[in-house]
Design a protein around this nucleic acid. Structure first.
Length: 242
DNA sequence: TACATATGATCAT
DNA sequence: TGATCCTATGTAA
């Protein structure tokens, strides 16, 4: 494996040279690439980061100065652009990592633990559901788009208190998020949550960023509310969601 | 051309 | 609560 990385953290990056990727895994929005030299590459794309995959030496779709990491083998190349989190961790650092260790169960994992998610959710039941769904310490992986879309498709009003939810309802919510995310993971490009966007005049979402426009199911105008400390926008249909 | 907003999260105040 | 990281996109002017 060949590694190209900025000179400012070349000390550890140099250790990777000539080693192999042994395992690639994710936990929520975090990507972890384990290598044969015991250093693990940890990436988080936040809003700006993106990946490009292809043959070695492929034409990059962004300027060289935006490259954060470049992993290359004889057959394939993976390039990470602009992600603000890009670090090389020792096993000790990985085990004690502040963000990673606090994450809830990964909603996309085959071994997703609904019991643990339920317990974490009800640690603070006096909280709006839309806010809680985005908390990565409860369940890891759900972002702002999937939050609004999953709540709409399960008919849950985002302003409802967590305490008013039942176990089956919560399980349906996680399952819906998982379904949307896995379906979308098989395609490239922007996030799409509508079944057939071509039939909706190019719309990609049921409610996300559709404030003031008619609900596809009942025609009621979509509304928006800001939730949580970060005032993140949640979109919903006041008729279809109760 | 300028501006607002954003698939996220941390840090300073 | 707001600034910040930083780029892309959509809309207004």
């Amino acid at each position: 494996m060949r590694v190209d990385a900025p000179a400012r953290w070349s000390s550890r990056a140099r250790q990777l040279r000539g080693h192999c990727v042994t395992e690639v895994g994710t936990h929520g929005k975090h990507l972890l690439v384990a290598t044969s030299c015991d250093l693990t590459v940890h990436c988080h794309a936040m809003i700006y980061g993106s990946w490009q995959f292809g043959a070695p030496g492929m034409t990059l779709r962004k300027p060289q100065r935006q490259v954060r990491l470049r992993l290359r083998t004889v057959e394939r190349e993976a390039v990470f652009f602009n992600g603000p989190v890009m670090e090389l961790l020792t096993p000790e650092e990985l085990a004690a990592h502040g963000r990673l260790t606090r994450l809830g169960p990964d909603v996309m994992s085959d071994t997703f633990d609904g019991n643990e998610a339920w317990c974490r959710l009800f640690l603070d039941a006096q909280r709006e559901t839309g806010d809680a769904v985005l908390d990565q310490r409860i369940v890891a992986g759900i972002g702002n788009i999937y939050k609004s879309e999953s709540l709409f498709l399960t008919g849950i009003l985002p302003t409802r208190m967590v305490s008013s939810l039942g176990r089956q309802q919560v399980d349906r919510l996680w399952n819906m998020a998982r379904h949307l995310m896995w379906r979308d993971a098989r395609r490239s490009g922007p996030i799409v949550t509508l079944d057939d966007p071509l039939r909706r005049d190019g719309d990609r979402h049921w409610v996300y960023r559709r404030r003031g426009r008619p609900c596809f199911r009942c025609g009621t105008r979509i509304e928006m509310v800001r939730q949580g400390e970060l005032r993140r926008a949640t979109y919903f249909c006041p008729t279809c969601q109760v």
